[in-house]
Simulated assay, not measured.
Amino acid sequence: MSQSARLAVAQSNEKGTERDEALAEVRQLIIDLRDAAQDGRDLARRYADVLQNVVDEYCIEFEKRAEAALARLEAAA
């Protein structure tokens, strides 16, 4: 095999290796992005649950206070 043919084969192998590495990197990036998106969805759900619980708690407390204030007004009338 001539030197130029060996050089062409070596360059072809190098390009193939670079391509394989780039594909592996893209695959890993896709996996990382999917994981990050899932983590973000999970976090959003947890915060939504916390916020819902806080709103429920304040609404219940407000309702109790409003009922007590209404009872005082009715008693004073």
Results as ranks from 00 to 15, higher is better:
L7Y: 09
D20C: 03
N53C: 02
I30A: 14
V50K: 05
R41A: 11
M1D: 06
I31V: 13
A8M: 12
R72S: 05
G16P: 00
A44G: 03
R34I: 07
L73K: 09
L7H: 10
D39W: 02
A71V: 02
G16C: 01
R46V: 09
A5L: 08
T17Q: 14
A8T: 13
Q28V: 04
R45M: 06
Y58V: 08
E67G: 00
R41S: 10
A5C: 02
D20A: 14
L43R: 12
E67F: 03
A71M: 04
L43D: 11
N53M: 02
R72D: 05
C59H: 11
A5N: 06
D39N: 10
E25S: 12
V50P: 00
K15L: 09
V26F: 02
D56A: 12
G16W: 00
A77E: 13
Y58D: 03
D32M: 05
F62E: 12
A36E: 13
D20V: 02
E21V: 12
K15H: 05
D56K: 10
A75S: 14
I30R: 15
L7Q: 13
L43P: 00
Q52N: 14
E25W: 05
A22V: 06
D39R: 14
E14C: 03
M1H: 07
R34D: 15
V9Q: 14
D20Y: 06
A75C: 10
G40E: 09
R41D: 13
R45L: 08
L23W: 03
A8P: 01
E67T: 06
A76Q: 04
D56N: 12
V55T: 15
A22M: 09
E25D: 08
A5R: 08
M1Q: 02
E14D: 09
L7R: 13
A36Q: 13
E21F: 05
R72I: 01
A71W: 00
